[in-house]
Design a protein around this nucleic acid. Structure first.
Lengths: 106, 106
DNA sequence: TATTTGTACAACCAAATGGTTGTGTATGAT
DNA sequence: ATCATACACAACCATTTGGTTGTACAAATA
């Protein structure tokens, strides 16, 4: 089990998805993310570390506060993968179709 | 840590993504999935269990063979979540825009 | 019938995960 | 100067994860 750190893993955890949704509404400091989350600041910090390592968020120091901004373009990788799977799925019977067409016209 | 079993977790693992891609080209039995995967049949079986519990694949007994078929429509949930996040992101400055417009027309 | 094939089940393992508490340390406000 | 705030770092913990080996068994095939 190598430590994987990619967007798929980033969005695998419900708490991290919650964080992403919160940040989608605008940048927040850590305390604001913690508020009403039901888990400790340290717990949130760990999730932020993961999100940061995946390039899903960027952090900016501002006085004693740390502002988090989400980078939603990273989610393109997920969309791309899903679309690739669907493309394969749609092409799945093309070979058979081609074979049957050839059969008929031969 | 409650045992989560959802589509996000299903696609979090690279091996499971590989399985989904393989199955996107058409149904396969377990042996065919194992071939060239680099991991043991038992390892694959565990991943198939997860995918099955997430509703990502359906299994059909056929003699002594077990055929796996992928259910790509389950991925809609992922697409929906990504789109929802992006919508929030786009709406993020609407309130501010509205405020500025009101300011100007007052 | 004997053997190979396709699979299932159980136990085991190290590492990762998702939390916690406890402590220290800057920064900003009173 | 004091105190509250916002955070970082470390240690700890139970559970999950992603594999492995080993054993057993039913279905095809020779």
């Amino acid at each position: 089990m190598i430590e994987r750190r990619d967007v798929f893993q980033a969005i695998a955890d419900p708490t991290r998805r919650m964080i992403i949704q919160k940040l989608s509404k605008g940048a927040l400091n850590i305390g604001q993310i913690v508020a009403d989350s039901g888990i400790t600041r340290q717990g949130i910090a760990k999730h932020l570390k993961v999100l940061s390592e995946c390039g899903m968020i960027s952090l900016t120091q501002k006085g004693r506060e740390q502002f988090c901004e989400v980078r939603l373009d990273q989610l393109d990788e997920v969309i791309d993968w899903v679309n690739a799977s669907r493309k394969l799925w749609n092409q799945r019977f093309e070979k058979l179709d081609k074979f049957l067409t050839d059969e008929k016209t031969r």
